[in-house]
Computed example of a mutant assay.
Amino acid sequence: KARRMLAAAPARIRRAVDRAVEQEAHLCRKEIVQGLTSGSPGGKRLAPLAASTLATRRARGMRGTKPLIARGDLRRSITVRRTPGGVFVGILRSARSRDGERLVDIARVHEFGKVVVYRMNDKARRAVAMMMRAAGVEPSGPGSKNGIVVNKIPARPFLGPVFAKLEKGAPARVFGRVVRLLAKGK
């Protein structure tokens, strides 16, 4: 009986470790989703939305005012997936928004920020100003002969702060789960 138990031990331990790591991944996903909902992933407050962003959302018929939650596509795309080397937590490359945009690209922009430069002619500039006025925001900023508009999307990290917060206690949590799973005989 002892030989059988010892022979089966490595497989039991491997299953317990795999299950414990997957449970940790689900905890991480839960924290990311709650952080997006509260506006403070990992306890770090997200930068508020610019008035122009809120105006654009209103013009598109969106009522949301929270950073990173226009319709919830990004929040819903946070996934836990088993891989041969462990567990993946994040946004899959195949994830798409309702509009067909790649959510991994959107997540990258928000995690790290981005500077966008537009070259606008007078007609485009008038159209943007009209849209902003219709949404209740008076356009501001310097005009230019070249029609260059620089839009800075600030970094609003929502994955990194959660990973940093959870990594401190992860080994102890996973070890505790492994012990509990082995004690239950699973």
Rank of each mutant, 00 (worst) to 15 (best):
K1S: 08
K1Q: 13
M5A: 09
M5S: 04
A11H: 14
V17Q: 15
R19D: 14
C28Q: 01
K30N: 05
E31G: 00
E31V: 06
S38E: 10
P41T: 15
P41H: 03
P41C: 06
G43P: 10
R45E: 07
A50D: 13
L54V: 07
T56S: 08
R58A: 13
R58Q: 12
R60F: 09
G64S: 05
K66I: 14
L68H: 06
A70Y: 10
R71A: 13
D73A: 12
D73E: 02
S77Q: 01
G85E: 07
L92P: 00
R93A: 06
R96V: 08
R96C: 02
R98Y: 01
E101G: 09
R102Q: 09
L103C: 07
V104Y: 09
V109D: 04
H110D: 00
H110T: 05
F112R: 00
G113K: 09
V116M: 08
R119H: 14
N121L: 08
D122I: 06
A124T: 02
R125N: 10
A129I: 01
M130E: 13
R133G: 00
P139K: 10
P139D: 12
P142I: 14
K145N: 04
K152G: 02
K152F: 15
A155G: 00
F163C: 08
G169F: 06
